[in-house]
């Protein structure tokens, strides 16, 4: 490669159709690190021919390396990892960042093992210190932040979605596009993959999440929360307790062992606020808590707390909102 310095490399995430926004977020953070260290920023995109790569060019990277092939239409991480490892051995990047999505989290370790390098999972922040990447990730139910460094190269990490702002758009200096060839088009013959359906429930993308906890007496009472969610244009969430009770399905679970959500508004109804639940929602822009116990820990992180019986408070809230 012609570049003087080895790049910071972003692995582009997509869904077989379009580029996932986490790619632009990684580019935003990586651009900042690359500037500091005077390193080029590169993106590696393995996509099927239907994925549009135009937008990638306007997000401040020096180069976009891409391979287009039908074989990348399915999420086959071993095929992706094989092809990526070939490119990466030539590029010799200093750093590789991959989105901590389900695909990224299964691809990254597959790739790290081939490249024989260390990997840090699920980072929430990154910085450069004396030329080394410091990978910051929450650990032990988010009670601590571990600062991790990798002694091998490339320094690899997966990074959580919605931690960083997207890279600014700049149409004036589009990135150089470099097409590469697929070296292997057949993954493990032993795996067949077919798409069955789209997601039915994805609360991580909802602008508003209305969640219920132990304060709910029975499963049907989620209807009351649904009415509030409908009034606010949101989706339903639940604490671990109500999911285990079978009040609501696991797709809706918020917390350490469920989904992490970062909505504009989170409404916690009858949720006391155990640290494991807070881990999944504490970064919401605005939190409203409704609980009959004034000493419930949820009130400490709420912007608005209402002490009261949720069965009394929610209907009043709904009628005020729709008035």
């Amino acid at each position: 490669m012609t570049q003087q310095n080895n790049p910071i490399l972003i692995v582009a995430e997509h869904n077989g159709q379009s580029i996932h926004p986490i790619t632009y977020e990684l580019m935003g953070k990586a651009k900042e690190l690359a500037k500091q260290q005077n390193l080029p920023l590169a993106v590696l995109a393995l996509v099927s021919p239907t994925v549009d790569l135009q937008e990638l060019r306007f997000r401040g990277a020096n180069s976009i390396f891409y391979i287009r092939h039908d074989c990348f239409a399915s999420p086959d991480e071993s095929l992706y990892a094989q092809n990526m490892s070939n490119v990466i051995r030539d590029l010799e990047p200093e750093v590789i960042l991959i989105g901590a999505t389900p695909f990224g989290r299964s691809l990254a370790p597959r790739l790290a093992a081939i490249l024989e390098t260390g990997l840090t999972a699920d980072c929430t922040d990154l910085k450069m210190e004396e030329g080394h990447l410091v990978q910051i990730r929450p650990a032990f139910s988010e009670n601590i932040l571990a600062h991790i460094q990798t002694e091998t190269k490339p320094q690899m990490a997966t990074v959580r979605y919605k931690e960083f702002a997207e890279a600014e758009r700049n149409e004036k200096e589009p990135s150089e596009m470099i097409e590469l060839q697929t070296l292997e088009t057949v993954g493990h013959q032993a795996i067949k993959t077919e798409r069955i359906s789209d997601f039915i429930v994805d609360i991580t993308e909802a602008p508003v999440v209305v969640s219920g906890g132990r304060g709910l007496k029975k499963a049907e009472d989620f209807k009351l929360l649904q009415a509030l969610a409908d009034a606010l244009g949101g989706m339903l969430g639940g604490s671990r307790a109500v999911v285990e009770e079978g009040f609501i399905s696991k797709d809706h679970q918020v917390g350490y062992s469920g989904h992490r959500v970062k909505p504009v508004l989170y409404v916690a109804c009858g949720i006391s606020g155990a640290p494991q639940h807070l881990a999944g929602m504490k970064e919401a822009e605005m939190i409203i808590a409704i609980n009959s116990d004034p000493s419930a820990p949820i009130f400490q992180i709420a912007d608005y707390g209402i002490v009261g019986d949720l069965y009394e408070v929610i209907p009043k809230l709904i009628s005020e909102i729709s008035r």
Binding site: H14, N15, G16, S74, P75, P102, F103, S106, H188, Q189, A190, I191, K192, T193, E194, R195, I196, S197, D198, F199, D202
Partner: peptide, 13 residues
Amino acid sequence: AVWDGIYRKTLTG
């Protein structure tokens, strides 16, 4: 559940 869908994966070996 991967990407934005549900996939069926069959392992033959």
